Computed example of a mutant assay.
Amino acid sequence: MDAASDALLRPVRTGNAFEETVERLLQAIKLGVVPPGERLPAERELASRLNVSRVTLREALHALQESGFVESRRGRYGGTFVCTAPPSAAPAVTSRVDDLEDALTLRSVLESGAAEFAAGRDLSDHERAHLTARLSECDGATLGEYRRKDSRLHLAVAEISGSPSLTAAVADVRMRLNELLDGIPLLPKNIAHSNRQHAILVDAILVGDPPGARRAMAQHLEGTASLLRGFLG
């Protein structure tokens, strides 16, 4: 493998192992480090280089296979191969990719701050029930309704921060991001991971742990950012 491969297929560093693994693999594919029709390194080597478990790697490869970026071939010369004609983002999304980093930066600042302030407030019973209900709805959402329920949970966090202006700003940046999110597939593994992170976030808010809530939200947002950069970058 060359230096470019070493740079892209480097160890995953955060708690979003699945999402970052998808991002690294997509970068390697989109930048031609592994050209169309070529085979990816063996699972054992890839898992070692990315510093992830074989289970996480297989889940990431399965997601890319479902999305049309790679295909699995059996037999003596089998393995995971980059598709000769990988899918591309929809034109409406492609035209807005330049907004991605700006939107991600704004979202990180706004939503991490909202989580911190929400956890620092003396919440009413109504606010606690509202947040818990939105978490439950998101956790039980179908694929078709997940993004809407996910948006509602994030808005609920902003709402209980106590700042209408902050809530409006979070809603605005969420609208921008949803247009970009519509251009990437819904990955069940990512949804399950997101729901676990949601639970940690809500728990930190309800027990009144501002630093913990800020960390939980930041880590959660990093996972979504990794997928967006991978699929749209």
Results as ranks from 00 to 15, higher is better:
67 S>I: 11
73 R>H: 12
139 D>N: 09
156 A>T: 00
182 D>R: 08
199 A>W: 01
114 A>C: 05
59 E>P: 01
12 V>Y: 02
129 A>Q: 05
104 L>H: 12
199 A>N: 03
131 L>Y: 03
141 A>C: 05
220 H>W: 04
209 D>R: 09
139 D>F: 05
6 D>L: 15
192 A>L: 08
129 A>H: 00
201 L>E: 01
19 E>Q: 13
47 A>P: 02
79 G>R: 03
218 A>V: 09
95 S>R: 15
64 L>D: 04
175 M>K: 06
150 D>N: 15
88 S>C: 13
212 G>C: 13
87 P>L: 02
135 L>M: 02
10 R>K: 14
46 L>R: 02
175 M>Q: 11
225 A>K: 13
103 A>G: 13
60 A>R: 04
31 L>I: 03
159 E>Y: 02
40 L>E: 07
56 T>K: 09
118 A>Y: 01
92 A>H: 13
121 R>K: 09
116 E>Y: 10
17 A>R: 15
63 A>P: 09
133 A>Q: 10
179 E>S: 03
83 C>K: 14
130 H>Q: 06
47 A>R: 06
116 E>W: 08
227 L>M: 04
193 H>G: 01
53 S>E: 05
192 A>K: 12
11 P>D: 03
157 V>D: 03
18 F>K: 05
227 L>Y: 05
174 R>D: 07
156 A>D: 01
166 L>N: 07
69 F>N: 04
33 V>G: 01
233 G>E: 01
16 N>A: 12
135 L>E: 02
13 R>V: 15
134 R>Y: 04
161 S>R: 02
75 G>M: 11
137 E>M: 06
157 V>M: 06
45 E>Q: 15
71 E>D: 10
10 R>Y: 12
85 A>E: 08
67 S>V: 10
8 L>I: 10
176 R>K: 14
154 H>T: 08
89 A>L: 14
51 N>G: 04
161 S>H: 02
129 A>L: 02
17 A>P: 08
68 G>V: 07
146 Y>C: 06
77 Y>D: 12
19 E>A: 08
186 L>M: 10
156 A>L: 03
34 V>C: 08
126 H>I: 00
9 L>W: 07
19 E>V: 00
4 A>K: 14
30 K>T: 09
159 E>H: 04
54 R>D: 05
1 M>C: 04
190 N>C: 13
59 E>W: 09
95 S>G: 06
190 N>S: 15
16 N>Y: 11
19 E>M: 07
65 Q>G: 04
66 E>G: 01
207 V>S: 04
128 R>E: 00
170 V>M: 08
16 N>T: 12
32 G>S: 06
226 S>K: 13
213 A>G: 07
17 A>T: 14
59 E>I: 07
150 D>P: 00
48 S>V: 13
98 D>Y: 15
132 T>W: 06
70 V>T: 12
209 D>V: 11
12 V>A: 01
142 T>C: 00
96 R>V: 03
74 R>H: 12
158 A>V: 00
80 T>H: 07
159 E>L: 08
214 R>F: 07
58 R>C: 10
